[in-house]
């Protein structure tokens, strides 16, 4: 143990660990998504490469890696190349503060929540740059959509986060989880005595997460039947591959955060068996349950219209999240008056 506690070793181990976690997730979530889509659509899905399709991510990866990275003439070459990097880096950074179990966290920062959201916002800029640098009309439309969509959905998301901050009183993700210990009724999702609208808050957070990660039914940025491939139209080979992986990495981060904030992170739903590997198991179970919900939603709903997407945010989600914020503040403070 003492060897692992050496700082450089620790950093290296976590760096490799997080990269492997994101890479593995991105690769196998694509497969899971395709298998899930196959299940929903009553077809086998990928089943040729490897054992029942389990080698498909490698086949895809090798194919994408072997392709030439084309930079079309007239594009802003530097931004065009930088965009995939900028879209992939933030989710990796975010995972540094996510506690996977009571002891498994790369950096237990006091400002963990702020850290995650500040890096999470870069994603939008990367998509916008990619779309703008591509010099393609579809990409530019997509870039404009991404910006207005993200602006619209960051507001309710951050309002929800502020609500959670008021409930927990800390930005340290590990502490937020520790507060939720002792059975599922202690999870923030079910803390209706703090705020009766807590489940609604969770739904808002989840919706915003879908919109922020550009997932169906809010996949305005890609919108393949309208904008061909949106911001990724001009990207080929691994440039596209990185965008694709980043989408899944962002989903992982979003679901991790939802788990930490609402579902008690690595806390066991029954009150005990939360320590060590059990905690890791509970955490991953919750995260993958949320991820499969995300996949399930994608393959069952058509895409929303762009203005109804914005309407949903500005007219419903923002007012409701403001109400929850006020209600939480009131419910936290009013009992103090009578003490």
């Amino acid at each position: 143990m003492s060897f692992l506690e050496l700082e450089p070793i620790r950093i290296l181990v976590y760096l490799v660990g997080i990269c492997a976690f994101v890479g593995g997730n991105a690769a196998y979530l694509v497969l899971a998504e395709r298998k899930g889509a196959g299940r929903i659509q009553r077809r086998p899905g990928p089943n040729e490469a490897g054992w029942g399709g389990w080698m498909q991510p490698f086949a895809d990866g090798i194919k994408l890696l072997a392709k030439q990275v084309m930079v079309p003439p007239g594009t802003d070459s530097l931004l065009f190349r930088a965009a995939p990097l900028m879209v992939m880096a933030p989710p990796l950074m975010c995972l540094a503060t996510i506690p996977f179990s009571d002891s498994l966290v790369a950096r237990n920062l006091n400002i963990g929540l702020l850290f995650v959201f500040s890096f999470g916002s870069i994603n939008v800029m990367a998509l916008m740059l990619g779309g703008w640098a591509s010099r393609n009309k579809y990409s530019i439309i997509s870039a404009a959509r991404v910006v207005s969509q993200s602006v619209a959905y960051e507001i309710p998301m951050l309002l929800v986060v502020i609500t959670m901050l008021m409930v927990s009183g800390t930005m340290n993700l590990q502490e937020i989880i520790v507060q939720q210990g002792g059975g599922f009724w202690h999870w923030n999702l079910f803390k209706v005595w703090v705020n009766p609208l807590m489940p609604v808050t969770f739904v808002i957070f989840f919706t915003c997460m879908l919109a922020e990660t550009n997932r169906a039914p809010f996949d305005m940025a890609e919108a393949e039947s309208e904008l061909v491939a949106g911001a990724f139209t001009e990207y080929g080979g691994m440039g596209f591959g990185v965008f694709f992986m980043a989408e899944y990495a962002n989903i992982v981060v979003g679901c991790c955060l939802a788990t930490v904030l609402f579902l008690g992170g690595w806390q066991s739903p029954i009150g005990y068996l939360s320590g060590g590997l059990w905690g890791l198991g509970w955490f991953l179970l919750k995260v993958y349950a949320l991820i499969s919900t995300v996949i399930w939603i994608r393959w069952t709903f058509p895409r929303t219209q762009f203005y109804s997407l914005l309407n949903l945010s500005w007219k419903i989600l923002i007012p409701v999240s403001l109400v929850t914020l006020l209600l939480t503040g009131a419910m936290l403070k009013i009992p103090l008056l009578f003490r």
Binding site: A37, I40, Q41, R42, R43, A216, P217, D219, A223, E224, S225, W299, T300, F301, P302, R303
Partner: peptide, 16 residues
């Protein structure tokens, strides 16, 4: 049409 609207699944049922 559903494919145009971004719903992928119905076309497979339809083709079935």
């Amino acid at each position: 049409l559903l494919l145009d609207l971004g719903g992928f699944t119905p076309i497979l049922y339809a083709f079935d």
